[in-house]
Amino acid sequence: KPIKKPLSKMTIAEKIDFLASLPGNMPKTLCLIEADGKTYRGTIVEKKGGSVFV
């Protein structure tokens, strides 16, 4: 049984796994993702290997 933590205590990898695995009937959370000096806004749809789809 996995231990449940508040989102604020999760690592970035744990947050991505959590948001990518939400059931389809739950509303997706809007995320701000900062990478290479740019900011992306959207919802995390899927994680495959080392790639995250927004």
Score class of each variant (00 low, 15 high):
residue 53 F to H: 08
residue 26 M to D: 03
residue 25 N to G: 01
residue 47 K to P: 01
residue 51 S to T: 12
residue 44 I to H: 01
residue 48 K to I: 15
residue 1 K to I: 14
residue 15 K to H: 01
residue 37 G to F: 02
residue 10 M to A: 03
residue 53 F to S: 06
residue 51 S to Q: 12
residue 20 A to N: 05
residue 4 K to M: 09
residue 30 L to K: 13
residue 26 M to W: 08
residue 54 V to M: 15
residue 10 M to P: 03
residue 53 F to M: 05
residue 35 A to R: 14
residue 21 S to D: 13
residue 7 L to T: 08
residue 16 I to Q: 04
residue 50 G to D: 14
residue 37 G to C: 03
residue 48 K to V: 15
residue 54 V to E: 03
residue 31 C to V: 15
residue 34 E to T: 15
residue 24 G to Q: 08
residue 36 D to V: 06
residue 24 G to T: 05
residue 7 L to M: 11
residue 38 K to L: 11
residue 51 S to K: 14
residue 22 L to E: 02
residue 49 G to E: 11
residue 11 T to D: 08
residue 14 E to S: 02
residue 31 C to F: 01
residue 33 I to F: 15
residue 33 I to P: 09
residue 27 P to W: 01
residue 44 I to E: 02
residue 12 I to C: 07
residue 38 K to S: 09
residue 46 E to P: 00
residue 7 L to G: 00
residue 41 R to I: 10
residue 33 I to S: 06
residue 17 D to E: 15
residue 52 V to Y: 01
residue 43 T to I: 12
residue 12 I to R: 08
residue 5 K to Q: 13
residue 18 F to W: 08
residue 16 I to N: 04
residue 11 T to S: 15
residue 31 C to I: 06
residue 48 K to R: 15
residue 25 N to P: 00
residue 13 A to C: 06
residue 8 S to N: 12
residue 21 S to K: 14
residue 34 E to H: 10
residue 32 L to I: 12
residue 9 K to W: 05
residue 38 K to G: 00
residue 30 L to R: 10
residue 11 T to C: 06
residue 46 E to M: 13
residue 52 V to Q: 01
residue 49 G to S: 07
residue 38 K to W: 04
residue 19 L to F: 09
residue 4 K to D: 08
residue 22 L to R: 10
residue 22 L to W: 02
residue 49 G to N: 12
residue 3 I to P: 03
residue 42 G to Q: 04
residue 10 M to H: 03
residue 47 K to C: 04
residue 19 L to H: 00
residue 52 V to L: 02
residue 36 D to L: 09
residue 9 K to Y: 05
residue 46 E to N: 15
residue 44 I to C: 05
residue 31 C to G: 01
residue 45 V to T: 12
residue 41 R to Q: 11
residue 11 T to H: 09
residue 52 V to W: 00
residue 23 P to H: 05
residue 52 V to P: 00
residue 4 K to W: 05
residue 42 G to H: 05
residue 38 K to V: 08
residue 41 R to H: 06
residue 48 K to D: 14
residue 45 V to W: 01
residue 2 P to R: 15
residue 50 G to T: 13
residue 37 G to I: 02
residue 38 K to R: 14
residue 23 P to Q: 04
residue 26 M to S: 08
residue 31 C to W: 02
residue 8 S to Q: 10
residue 29 T to E: 10
residue 5 K to W: 06
residue 32 L to W: 10
residue 28 K to V: 03
residue 50 G to V: 12
residue 18 F to I: 00
residue 2 P to I: 09
residue 28 K to F: 04
residue 50 G to F: 11
residue 53 F to Q: 04
residue 30 L to G: 03
residue 41 R to K: 13
residue 49 G to Y: 06
residue 48 K to L: 14
residue 33 I to K: 07
residue 28 K to C: 05
residue 24 G to L: 07
residue 38 K to D: 04
residue 25 N to W: 07
residue 37 G to Y: 03
residue 20 A to L: 08
residue 6 P to E: 14
residue 1 K to V: 14
residue 14 E to M: 02
residue 40 Y to Q: 10
residue 6 P to Q: 12
residue 50 G to Y: 10
residue 21 S to W: 03
residue 38 K to I: 07
residue 22 L to A: 03
